[in-house]
Design a protein around this nucleic acid. Structure first.
Length: 463
RNA sequence: GGCGGAAUAGCAAAGUGGCUAUGCAGUGGAUUGCAAAUCCAUCUACCUCGGUUCGACUCCGGGUUCCGCCUCCA
């Protein structure tokens, strides 16, 4: 029985899909004007794991996962102008880069990846519905605004009261707005800006409306899960509720899931602070799977501190798991019904507790190591289960050798050079020339290559 | 100021009203030509002050510190 923490009710509740034959999840994806950083990696990975687990529970063909792309907004326009290129050229490039990064991290593609620019009709229709329902108004300057006073439940998700928002007024005063808290649905185009025709003149959508329009269009008026980063809770998701419910008159979303931030030195990793590390940058030093593992070592709602130490720890932990799987390459992933499997599911059922789930992977690794010499049957079954469970987290998807021999960074000795030195060392060992044997091992160690003599075989890995 | 979250061993990070979390690192032992890997054992904990309780790291209340949101942000 899956229990999830719902940001809307601020408590854990049993997850009951509206229709178990069609479980629907929408996640706010990226605004594509730059490369994805580790914070984005966290959203990608966290919701990928949630998606995988929903597929496991309900069947892959019964789960629909939508993750949008924001491909038009102020920053995109600004960046495109700086580069002197068309905005769509810029977004096209970064969408492609995002797909590369996601694939590297083992993130499954969502069922659909709608873009704002491809859904202008739906966006305009929803704004028209809002105006018709008296929730929105067209201002004299060509903008269309949502009238916050006409949605009585405003603040239900973020727990904010209108008075409080007014008290701490940080919203710019805008003459065109009837209330300073009203937010824009449609922005009139400035000269030379990309624009789309609308009943209110040429313009483009505000940020919040695209997610309302696209999620409703792809999943229906009322669906199960809406996710995103914690910072989207307000105003973005709050506004989405106001828009969707204001337009359709129906309940919008049952469960809201928000992931915590990646931090650097106790500070949120963000573009504006400039303390971010892009996925492609980090991948140069750490295997993408190490990043994925690192993300899963912390609960999705907890903060996650980015540091080289933590990534090194993640790599060491993965090395332990892959080392256990050495010699088990041919074992097929399978569930043999051990206690570890039960506990793994119990952890995942408890609001996707991946750190707890991971501990059961180590139980299985230990089983393999303990029995591999004495009880091959047992060891094999444990290996099958380890692969089986790890796969649900998108981990241990490569051969132990390809992980263990990859190491970090480029340069150093080639595989062939390493094999040749090992060959030389084994000849020395056969002659009991320990001095020469150790010299070669030290030489390799200096090059970041670790040797392991096991059962008469010498294997190696890069540090 | 308003709202929300967090404080656990050297580091990271779960969890539980009484029973070894786990990973990395450390220590002792087994194994090894010596190592590495592995196995066995083991040392370091639950911010603070009160309360409830036979018993609290775990529940309740006060305090302190940190973080996030309230403007674009995953």
């Amino acid at each position: 029985m899956l229990v999830v923490y719902n940001s809307l009710t601020k408590q854990k509740e049993v997850f009951n899909p509206i229709d178990p034959q069609n479980v629907r999840m929408y996640v706010c994806g990226m605004t594509v004007y730059d490369f994805c950083h580790i914070g984005h990696a966290r959203v990608l990975v966290v919701f990928d794991v949630i998606y995988r687990y929903l597929c496991k529970l309900y069947g892959a063909e019964k789960v629909t996962y939508i993750r949008n792309v924001t491909d038009i907004d102020d920053k995109i326009i600004q960046r495109a102008n700086e580069n002197g290129e068309d905005f769509s050229q810029l977004t096209g490039r970064f969408i492609e880069a995002m797909h590369e990064d996601a694939a590297a991290l083992g993130v499954l593609p969502p069922n659909q990846e709608p873009c704002a620019t491809a859904h202008m009709q739906q966006i305009i229709e929803m704004i028209e519905a809002l105006i018709k329902n008296g929730k929105a108004y067209a201002a004299d300057n060509g903008d269309v605004y949502y009238s916050i006073n006409h949605f009585k439940d405003y603040g239900q998700l973020s727990g904010k009261k209108l008075e409080d928002l007014r008290a701490g007024e940080r919203v710019e005063v805008d003459e065109a707005k009837r209330d300073p808290l009203d937010f824009v649905l449609w922005k009139a185009a400035k000269p030379d800006e990309p624009s789309w025709p609308s009943p209110w003149g040429k313009g483009r959508p505000g940020w919040h409306i695209e997610c309302s329009a696209m999620s409703t269009h792809c999943l229906g008026n009322h669906f199960d899960i809406h996710g995103g980063g914690m910072d989207l809770q307000f105003p973005h998701h709050e506004n989405e509720i106001a828009q969707s419910e204001g337009a359709t008159g129906e309940k919008f979303v049952n469960v809201w899931l928000h992931n915590g931030f990646v931090r650097v030195d106790e500070e949120k990793m963000s573009k504006s602070l400039g303390n971010f590390f892009t996925i492609r940058e980090v991948i140069k030093t750490f295997a993408p799977e190490v990043i994925r593992y690192f993300i899963l070592t912390s609960h999705y709602r907890s903060p996650l501190n980015y540091s080289e130490t933590n990534l090194n720890n993640a790599r060491a932990a993965l090395t332990t798991l892959y080392t256990a799987l050495k010699g088990m390459e041919d074992v097929e992933a399978a569930n043999h019904g051990s206690v570890s499997v039960d506990k793994f599911y119990k952890a995942m059922d408890d609001d996707f507790n991946t750190p707890e789930a991971l501990t059961h992977l180590f139980e299985l690794a230990k089983e393999i190591n303990k029995h591999r010499q004495t009880d091959v049957q047992k060891a094999t079954e444990a290996a099958a289960e380890l692969k089986f469970l790890a796969a649900q987290l998108g981990l241990l998807q490569q051969s132990p050798d390809s992980f263990l021999k990859a190491g970090s960074g480029e340069g150093g000795l080639s595989d062939a050079e390493i094999e040749a030195l090992i060959q030389k060392r084994n000849e020395a060992r056969a002659n009991k020339d320990w001095a020469e044997s150790d010299r070669i091992r030290d030489e390799l160690k200096e090059q970041g290559v670790i040797l392991e003599d096991n059962a008469g075989q010498t294997s190696w890995r890069r540090e």
